[in-house]
Design a protein around this nucleic acid. Structure first.
Length: 201
DNA sequence: AGAGTGATGTTCT
DNA sequence: GAACATCACTCTA
C-alpha cells in the first residue's frame, strides 16, 4: 500500500527513520530503501537553509513529493520532501536493495553486480533513471514514481551524514544518517553504530 | 581500509 | 567563478 501524504508531514528525523525498509518503485524496478539521511529546517547542510531558490522551491512545499537535484554535474539525487508547506526539509535516499528488476538495474549501472549497484545516492538515481524533471512528483498518488509500505528492519544503525563537511560543526556531527542493520546494501557501513533511544528526536 | 584524483555541469554569489 | 548531499578508478597497505 502507498505511504499516505500524512506520513511525510511529520518531523523529518522520524520520517527518515521510518523510511528505512519502505519500497520505491519506478516502472519495472522496485527497490527497498536501506539508508537515508535527514536534512532539517535550520540545518546548515540542508539546501533549503540558504533560502528559497528555483531549485529548492519544492522543498518548501508540502511533504510527500520528490526533490531531485543534480550533484557534481552528473548524479541525480533522490529526496523525499517532508513536513508542512513553508518548511524546507527533506530526506535523501542514500542506498537501496533490489526487490524487482535486477537485470535492468544492472544494465543501467554498467553491468555491475551486487551491493555496488545501489550503495550511494547517485547510484539510486541512475538505477531508477531519474532526472530533475521528476522533482515535485507526488509520491503518494500511485503514478510513475511511488513509495510503498515495506518491511522495516528489526534494528537500525545511525551515523554522521556523508559529504557535509561544509556545514556548521553541530550539523556536520549530528547523527542524522539511518540504515538497516539487516543488509550489506548500505554505504560507508563501518561508520555506522546501533541506534540508541536517547538519540530520538 | 584509506587516500588521492579526474570527470562533469548546474546553481548561485 | 567557486562550490558542490558523488563515483569509479588507482594506488599504497
Amino acid at each position: 500500500m502507498h505511504l499516505p501524504q500524512e506520513f511525510y508531514l511529520r518531523p523529518t528525523i522520524t520520517v527518515a527513520r521510518e523510511l528505512v525498509g519502505a519500497l520505491v518503485r519506478r516502472g519495472p524496478v522496485t527497490l527497498r530503501i536501506t539508508e537515508t539521511e535527514a536534512y532539517l529546517p535550520g540545518d546548515s547542510a540542508c539546501h533549503a537553509a540558504r533560502g528559497l531558490t528555483p531549485r529548492t522551491r519544492v522543498m518548501f512545499g508540502p511533504g510527500g513529493h520528490a526533490y531531485v537535484y543534480l550533484c557534481y554535474g552528473m548524479h541525480q539525487m533522490l529526496n523525499f520532501v517532508t513536513e508542512r508547506e513553508g518548511v524546507g526539509a527533506a530526506v535523501l535516499i542514500r542506498s537501496c536493495e533490489i526487490v524487482k528488476g535486477y537485470a535492468l538495474v544492472s544494465k543501467r549501472r554498467g553491468g555491475l553486480e551486487g551491493p555496488v549497484l545501489l550503495t550511494g545516492p547517485g547510484k539510486v538515481g541512475q538505477a531508477l533513471a531519474l532526472d530533475r524533471s521528476m522533482s515535485g512528483w507526488p509520491l503518494f498518488g500511485g503514478g510513475d514514481l511511488e513509495v510503498l509500505e515495506g518491511i522495516a528492519p528489526a534494528r537500525l544503525l545511525c551515523g554522521r551524514r556523508i559529504g557535509v563537511d561544509y556545514a556548521r560543526p553541530r550539523d556536520r556531527n549530528a547523527l542524522w544518517r539511518f540504515a538497516a542493520a539487516d543488509t550489506a546494501w548500505v554505504s560507508h557501513r563501518g561508520k555506522l553504530k546501533p541506534l540508541r533511544y536517547h538519540q530520538d528526536a
